[in-house]
Simulated scan of single mutants.
Amino acid sequence: MTEQAEERRTYLLIDGENLDATLGVGILERRPRPEERPRWERVLQFARAQWDQPVQGLFFLAARHELPMAFVQALISIGFRPIPLTGRPDEKVVDIAISRTLRALADRPADIMLASHDGDFLEDLASVTDGRRTGVIAFQEFRSQGYRELVERGLEFFDLEYDVQAFDTRLPRVRIIPIEEFDPLEFI
Protein backbone atom coordinates (compact mmCIF):
# COMPACT_ATOMS: atom_id res chain seq x y z
CA MET A 1 0.00 0.00 0.00
CA THR A 2 1.38 3.44 -0.86
CA GLU A 3 1.81 6.24 1.65
CA GLN A 4 -0.82 8.32 -0.18
CA ALA A 5 -3.38 5.49 -0.03
CA GLU A 6 -3.01 5.44 3.76
CA GLU A 7 -3.45 9.20 4.13
CA ARG A 8 -6.69 10.17 5.85
CA ARG A 9 -9.00 12.38 3.83
CA THR A 10 -12.24 14.26 4.00
CA TYR A 11 -15.06 13.30 1.67
CA LEU A 12 -17.05 16.40 0.80
CA LEU A 13 -20.51 15.39 -0.47
CA ILE A 14 -22.37 18.20 -2.25
CA ASP A 15 -26.16 17.95 -2.64
CA GLY A 16 -26.23 20.35 -5.59
CA GLU A 17 -30.00 20.27 -6.11
CA ASN A 18 -30.76 20.98 -2.46
CA LEU A 19 -28.32 23.86 -2.10
CA ASP A 20 -29.45 25.46 -5.37
CA ALA A 21 -33.14 25.15 -4.49
CA THR A 22 -32.60 26.59 -1.02
CA LEU A 23 -30.62 29.52 -2.41
CA GLY A 24 -33.22 30.20 -5.11
CA VAL A 25 -36.51 29.54 -3.36
CA GLY A 26 -35.60 30.13 0.27
CA ILE A 27 -33.27 33.12 0.05
CA LEU A 28 -33.44 34.89 -3.31
CA GLU A 29 -37.05 33.93 -4.15
CA ARG A 30 -35.98 33.48 -7.79
CA ARG A 31 -33.49 31.56 -9.87
CA PRO A 32 -29.95 32.54 -8.80
CA ARG A 33 -27.82 34.42 -11.31
CA PRO A 34 -24.32 33.03 -11.95
CA GLU A 35 -22.65 35.66 -9.77
CA GLU A 36 -24.98 34.73 -6.88
CA ARG A 37 -24.06 31.06 -6.83
CA PRO A 38 -21.49 29.55 -4.48
CA ARG A 39 -17.85 29.54 -5.53
CA TRP A 40 -17.34 25.81 -5.31
CA GLU A 41 -13.55 26.04 -5.22
CA ARG A 42 -13.92 27.93 -1.92
CA VAL A 43 -15.97 25.08 -0.49
CA LEU A 44 -13.18 22.64 -1.35
CA GLN A 45 -10.56 25.01 0.11
CA PHE A 46 -12.61 25.43 3.28
CA ALA A 47 -12.94 21.66 3.80
CA ARG A 48 -9.21 21.18 3.21
CA ALA A 49 -8.25 23.97 5.62
CA GLN A 50 -10.87 23.17 8.29
CA TRP A 51 -9.59 19.68 8.98
CA ASP A 52 -6.09 20.10 7.50
CA GLN A 53 -6.15 17.09 5.21
CA PRO A 54 -6.77 16.19 1.56
CA VAL A 55 -10.36 16.44 0.31
CA GLN A 56 -12.22 14.35 -2.22
CA GLY A 57 -15.10 16.50 -3.45
CA LEU A 58 -18.10 14.59 -4.82
CA PHE A 59 -20.73 16.80 -6.46
CA PHE A 60 -24.06 15.02 -6.93
CA LEU A 61 -26.44 16.42 -9.53
CA ALA A 62 -29.56 15.25 -11.32
CA ALA A 63 -29.06 15.06 -15.07
CA ARG A 64 -32.42 13.76 -16.22
CA HIS A 65 -32.25 14.53 -19.94
CA GLU A 66 -29.01 16.32 -20.63
CA LEU A 67 -25.57 16.58 -19.10
CA PRO A 68 -24.79 20.22 -18.17
CA MET A 69 -21.37 19.90 -19.78
CA ALA A 70 -20.07 23.42 -19.08
CA PHE A 71 -20.90 23.08 -15.37
CA VAL A 72 -19.46 19.55 -15.20
CA GLN A 73 -16.23 20.69 -16.84
CA ALA A 74 -16.00 23.64 -14.43
CA LEU A 75 -16.42 21.28 -11.46
CA ILE A 76 -13.70 18.98 -12.78
CA SER A 77 -11.32 21.89 -13.37
CA ILE A 78 -11.57 23.02 -9.73
CA GLY A 79 -11.10 19.53 -8.32
CA PHE A 80 -14.57 18.03 -7.85
CA ARG A 81 -15.66 14.69 -9.14
CA PRO A 82 -19.13 15.32 -10.64
CA ILE A 83 -21.68 12.55 -10.25
CA PRO A 84 -24.51 13.18 -12.73
CA LEU A 85 -27.45 10.88 -12.03
CA THR A 86 -30.67 9.87 -13.68
CA GLY A 87 -33.58 7.64 -12.76
CA ARG A 88 -37.34 7.47 -12.81
CA PRO A 89 -39.17 10.80 -12.41
CA ASP A 90 -40.40 9.75 -8.96
CA GLU A 91 -36.89 8.93 -7.70
CA LYS A 92 -34.79 11.44 -5.76
CA VAL A 93 -31.62 10.23 -7.46
CA VAL A 94 -29.28 12.64 -5.70
CA ASP A 95 -30.63 11.69 -2.26
CA ILE A 96 -30.38 7.98 -3.09
CA ALA A 97 -26.78 8.35 -4.25
CA ILE A 98 -25.68 10.43 -1.26
CA SER A 99 -27.27 7.96 1.16
CA ARG A 100 -25.49 5.07 -0.56
CA THR A 101 -22.21 6.98 -0.42
CA LEU A 102 -22.58 7.73 3.30
CA ARG A 103 -23.22 4.03 3.93
CA ALA A 104 -20.18 3.06 1.83
CA LEU A 105 -17.98 5.50 3.76
CA ALA A 106 -18.93 3.85 7.06
CA ASP A 107 -16.21 1.24 6.46
CA ARG A 108 -13.50 3.72 5.45
CA PRO A 109 -11.17 5.66 7.72
CA ALA A 110 -12.33 9.03 6.42
CA ASP A 111 -13.97 12.20 7.65
CA ILE A 112 -17.16 13.50 6.06
CA MET A 113 -18.64 16.91 5.27
CA LEU A 114 -22.13 16.93 3.82
CA ALA A 115 -23.34 20.08 2.08
CA SER A 116 -27.13 19.87 2.26
CA HIS A 117 -30.10 21.06 4.29
CA ASP A 118 -31.94 17.79 3.77
CA GLY A 119 -33.02 15.81 6.83
CA ASP A 120 -33.32 12.68 4.67
CA PHE A 121 -29.64 11.99 5.39
CA LEU A 122 -29.98 12.11 9.16
CA GLU A 123 -29.95 8.35 9.72
CA ASP A 124 -27.04 7.71 7.34
CA LEU A 125 -25.01 10.61 8.74
CA ALA A 126 -25.73 9.43 12.29
CA SER A 127 -24.23 6.04 11.43
CA VAL A 128 -20.91 7.66 10.46
CA THR A 129 -20.84 10.16 13.34
CA ASP A 130 -18.90 7.58 15.28
CA GLY A 131 -15.72 9.27 16.43
CA ARG A 132 -14.62 10.49 13.02
CA ARG A 133 -15.02 14.15 12.12
CA THR A 134 -18.35 14.90 10.49
CA GLY A 135 -19.87 18.18 9.45
CA VAL A 136 -22.84 19.73 7.68
CA ILE A 137 -22.44 22.76 5.45
CA ALA A 138 -25.69 24.65 4.90
CA PHE A 139 -27.49 27.93 5.46
CA GLN A 140 -28.11 27.63 9.20
CA GLU A 141 -31.71 28.88 9.05
CA PHE A 142 -32.69 26.19 6.51
CA ARG A 143 -30.70 23.24 7.84
CA SER A 144 -32.79 20.33 9.10
CA GLN A 145 -33.18 20.66 12.86
CA GLY A 146 -32.75 16.89 13.17
CA TYR A 147 -29.00 17.29 12.79
CA ARG A 148 -28.81 19.10 16.14
CA GLU A 149 -29.23 15.72 17.83
CA LEU A 150 -25.81 14.70 16.48
CA VAL A 151 -23.87 17.66 17.92
CA GLU A 152 -23.14 15.84 21.18
CA ARG A 153 -21.66 13.00 19.09
CA GLY A 154 -19.30 15.44 17.37
CA LEU A 155 -21.18 16.74 14.33
CA GLU A 156 -20.01 20.24 13.38
CA PHE A 157 -22.03 22.89 11.54
CA PHE A 158 -20.65 25.31 8.98
CA ASP A 159 -22.66 28.12 7.39
CA LEU A 160 -22.14 28.20 3.61
CA GLU A 161 -22.04 31.99 3.50
CA TYR A 162 -20.55 33.07 6.83
CA ASP A 163 -18.13 30.25 7.70
CA VAL A 164 -17.23 28.92 4.26
CA GLN A 165 -17.41 32.36 2.60
CA ALA A 166 -18.54 30.74 -0.64
CA PHE A 167 -20.19 33.87 -2.09
CA ASP A 168 -18.86 37.02 -3.72
CA THR A 169 -21.82 39.10 -2.54
CA ARG A 170 -23.82 39.28 0.69
CA LEU A 171 -27.06 37.33 0.43
CA PRO A 172 -30.39 38.83 1.58
CA ARG A 173 -30.78 36.44 4.51
CA VAL A 174 -32.76 36.77 7.70
CA ARG A 175 -30.96 34.81 10.38
CA ILE A 176 -30.30 34.86 14.09
CA ILE A 177 -27.13 36.89 14.58
CA PRO A 178 -24.74 36.07 17.44
CA ILE A 179 -24.16 39.37 19.25
CA GLU A 180 -20.40 39.17 18.72
CA GLU A 181 -21.06 39.20 14.95
CA PHE A 182 -23.61 42.02 14.98
CA ASP A 183 -22.55 45.04 12.94
CA PRO A 184 -25.09 47.89 13.00
CA LEU A 185 -23.58 49.30 9.79
CA GLU A 186 -25.15 46.40 7.92
CA PHE A 187 -28.59 47.69 8.90
CA ILE A 188 -28.39 51.48 8.83
Rank of each mutant, 00 (worst) to 15 (best):
L105V: 15
F157A: 09
A63N: 07
T169Q: 12
I83T: 11
E29A: 07
R148N: 11
D130P: 12
E3N: 08
A166H: 03
V94P: 08
A5R: 04
P178C: 08
I176Y: 06
R37S: 06
G57I: 10
P38I: 12
R39V: 15
R64M: 12
E66A: 15
G87T: 08
H117Q: 10
D118H: 06
L102A: 08
Q45W: 01
P68W: 01
V25E: 15
E152I: 13
I83W: 05
E181T: 11
G26Q: 02
S99R: 10
T129L: 05
L114T: 14
P172H: 05
G16Y: 07
F167P: 04
E17Q: 08
W40A: 09
A74Y: 06
Q73F: 06
I137D: 02
R133H: 00
M69S: 10
R48T: 04
L155G: 09
D15T: 12
L125G: 00
A47R: 00
F158E: 01
L13M: 11
D118M: 08
F71L: 14
E29R: 13
V93L: 11
I98V: 13
R64Q: 12
I177T: 02
R37W: 03
R64G: 05
Q50K: 15
N18C: 14
A166W: 09
F60W: 15
I137F: 01
G154T: 05
E41K: 12
L122W: 01
A104Q: 09
G24I: 05
F142G: 08
L185C: 07
A126I: 07
I27Q: 10
L122R: 01
G57T: 05
E41H: 08
E36D: 12
L105D: 15
R132A: 15
G119W: 00
E152V: 14
R133D: 02
I14N: 11
F142Q: 03
F71T: 05
P34W: 03
P84G: 05
G16F: 08
F60N: 05
F60K: 10
R48P: 01
V136S: 04
L61F: 05
D20E: 14
F142D: 07
G24P: 02
E91F: 04
R8A: 14
F187Y: 07
I176H: 03
E180G: 02
P172T: 09
L61I: 14
A110D: 10
E7M: 12
R8H: 15
R31Q: 06
P54S: 13
D107C: 00
L125F: 06
R88G: 06
F80M: 08
Q50W: 13
R100W: 00
L171M: 12
D90H: 06
A49P: 04
Q145T: 14
R108V: 14
A21D: 09
A138C: 11
F71C: 01
G135D: 09
D15W: 09
R175Y: 13
T169D: 11
G16W: 03
W40I: 07
E123K: 01
R148K: 08
P38M: 14
E91G: 00
I177G: 00
R30K: 10
D183G: 06
V164G: 12
G24D: 02
D124F: 05
